[in-house]
Write a protein that binds this DNA or RNA. Structure first.
Length: 649
DNA sequence: AAAATACAAT
């Protein structure tokens, strides 16, 4: 078949280098095995081992290794690496420990690999022995070995040792620095991680994709300064790879900058870079945040087209995107189409039903999950408890809290406590809620007191409201929302003097109300409205239409509700001020710019106020549209004058 | 004949 055996060698080698699939691989294997000449070529043996390992067929790799009569150090190295690349760290270390008894001396290829095994399994004990061994033979001066040591120490929480190795390396490259960055970042030493980046830049070592990826833990929920720092690294990359785009998207998403994440994703598409499963899983939460349903659906189709499924992580991300966009049917469709569902999938679905006001369904799902033998975790309980509070299911909520602590022995966290306070408070048990807070074994946080204060507003409990507000003003003196809530409590009781007093406190502390912002997605674009926004090109038309609507609403008995707003405007301005809350603008804009009959989806950054809630109900009736509003707490589905929350929110 | 750091959710 081949003119010369040497040509066959080369051909087989080249095919194997490309890691063929398992079927091709077995065919080649058989050919090589039966050919006397090929069988004796050590290079083909190495390549065969490597290719099997790349397919996860570690047992076959081992079988070939064992069958080689005359081994050399390379065989050992490849065997070790095959184990390590398949997460079999102890097996890798075992081969390493036995190789010297066969007379093979570990070399500059062996050590980086076994160090990786130590890093990945956090095996400091063996790591230290390896360090001693490489120093003895001077291999610690080797770049690859040094990098392995930095990484090993970093992964084993020994930052000082990692830093010392780095400092003493005779030569460093970008990987050396990145390993150090990763070490600090993984140990929550975020400032140190960033400091290393600056240091490497000073020494004219350009940060690369690896630097960005290593920095990731240090760049979640960070300052905008740090975000722009990593953006600058991204912009200055000599060559942008898929991973660099993925990391940059993740940075935006994990810093509550979903709009920027989506923009970057669209830019990436313009550059004709093909997104992979990681890209999609990273960008989907941003779609959820923005209620960018059209983009979300497009990504879903892309996943199906690319056959990325099954992929639990990705499917959970799609499911959660639909849940966050208020699309219960699509969310459960995805859930039902999944081959396997884990606790995360169930939790997503349960909280979706909960947030959409279908508390009983959420509770039923939770029960079903238990029936199927799935063990709920701490987060799953948060989802069912909050579903109970949104649905007004007082007894069920109490039952699940008890189930969690008694049967599952889960220690309640602040999230669970705030759900319970919310549950009791919304159900009108304001005193019970307050007692619950007082009896908590851990220090209540902002969320807990906030839930109590909200309950006090709904049920006009001034006494407890003042206690809660007082705590909140100490904990979060700059949070405008709590001042507004207290002022609402006073306003409802017609205590106008106190209302004025709260306003002047806010003024003296320089606190501004968080401006209301609403997003609406139309024709694949997201439009943003601020309260009182007049910056849109079609602003005039918008306000005219709003006037027409308000007129029709008044015919249906609409009376602008003035106590919903903080009285920071003059009396006569109140009605006008209320009329331009951002969700009203967004709704009117959507009515004007979409097909009649289609659903309108709005997301907003604050809780929807009583007046807008009434208005939305009426508008849904007048315009014959379903309006879905997602506020910071839940979904409101307005249809034909009725809201899914049953006016209980 | 063979190499090290590094991207995903409730």
């Amino acid at each position: 078949m081949h003119d010369s055996p040497f040509l066959a060698d080369e051909l087989f080698g080249r095919v194997l280098d490309e890691y063929p699939d398992i079927k091709t691989l077995k065919k080649l294997h058989a050919k090589i095995f039966f050919d006397q000449h090929l069988h004796q070529n050590p290079s083909l043996g190495i390549k065969l081992m490597r290719a099997y390992a790349a397919n996860g067929e570690i047992r076959i790799t081992r079988h070939i290794f064992d069958g080689i009569p005359v081994k050399n150090v390379v065989f050992f190295n490849v065997m070790i690496r095959s184990y390590v690349n398949n997460y079999r760290y102890d097996d890798g270390l075992l081969v390493f420990k036995t190789m010297s008894s066969y007379g093979f001396i570990p070399d500059n290829y062996t050590y980086p690999c076994v160090l990786k095994a130590c890093s990945a399994s956090q095996n400091l004990w063996v790591g230290l022995q390896i360090h001693a061994a490489v120093v003895k033979i001077g291999l610690d001066l080797n770049l690859f070995v040094g990098n392995g040591l930095v990484s090993m120490y970093g992964k084993c929480d020994k930052l000082l040792e990692a830093r010392q190795v780095l400092d003493e390396m005779p030569r460093r490259d970008v990987v050396s620095w990145n390993s150090m960055v990763a070490g600090y970042a993984q140990n929550a030493r975020f400032d140190d991680a960033l400091e290393i980046c600056r240091e490497m830049e000073l020494l004219r070592q350009r940060p690369d994709v690896g630097t960005m990826a290593s920095l990731l833990p240090a760049i979640t929920n960070t300052s905008s300064y740090n975000v722009s720092y990593i953006k600058r690294i991204f912009d200055n990359l000599v060559k942008k790879s898929l991973v660099s785009w993925n990391v940059m998207i993740t940075v935006f998403v994990s810093n509550s900058m979903p709009g920027e994440a989506v923009d970057l994703f669209l830019q990436m598409e313009d550059c004709e870079i093909e997104p992979d499963a990681v890209t999609i899983a990273s960008i989907l939460p941003a779609c959820g945040d923005l209620s960018a349903l059209l983009l979300g659906r497009r990504l879903h189709r892309y996943v199906d087209m690319k056959k990325f499924r099954p992929n639990l992580l990705l499917e959970n991300a799609i499911l959660d995107m639909y849940a966050k966009c208020g699309c219960l049917e699509e969310a459960s469709e995805v859930f039902n189409s999944m081959k396997f569902q884990d606790v995360v999938s169930w939790t997503s679905l349960i909280s979706a039903y909960g947030r959409n006001g279908q508390g009983s369904e959420a509770v039923a799902l939770f029960a079903k999950m238990q029936d199927l033998g799935m063990s709920p975790d701490s987060v799953a309980f948060v989802s069912v408890l909050s579903a109970c509070s949104h649905g007004g299911l007082l007894d069920e909520g109490k039952y699940y809290f008890k189930l969690m602590t008694d049967k599952y022995q889960i220690v309640p966290r602040l999230e669970h406590y705030s759900c319970m306070v919310d549950l009791l408070g919304r159900a009108g048990r304001v005193h019970d809620a307050y007692n619950f807070v007082k009896e908590m074994p851990i220090e209540p946080n902002e969320r807990v007191w906030g839930a109590l204060l909200s309950a006090c507003r709904v049920y006009s409990n001034m006494e407890i409201g003042l206690v809660a507000a007082d705590k909140l003003f100490q904990m979060a003196p700059q949070q405008a929302g709590y001042y507004v809530l207290l002022s609402n409590i006073y306003a409802k009781a017609e205590r106008w003097q106190e209302v004025t007093r709260v306003r002047s406190i806010m003024k003296s502390r320089g606190i501004k109300k968080t401006p209301g912002v609403s997003n609406v997605e139309l024709n694949h674009k997201i439009y943003t409205f601020l309260a009182g926004d007049r910056s849109h090109p079609k602003s005039k038309e918008l306000y005219e239409e709003l006037d027409v609507l308000v007129g029709k609403m008044k015919e249906l008995g609409y009376v602008p509700e003035t106590d919903s707003a903080l009285h920071d405007v003059e009396e006569e301005d109140k009605e006008c001020h209320l009329a331009v809350h951002s969700e009203k603008l967004a709704i009117v804009f959507a009515i004007l710019n979409s097909e009649p009959g289609t659903t309108i989806r709005i997301t907003k950054n604050l809780r929807v106020c009583g007046d807008c809630h009434t208005a939305a109900k009426l508008i849904s009736k007048i315009s014959e549209r379903e309006i879905v509003v997602r506020d910071t707490h839940r979904f409101h589905h307005f249809t034909n004058g009725i809201c899914s929350c049953g006016d209980y929110w």
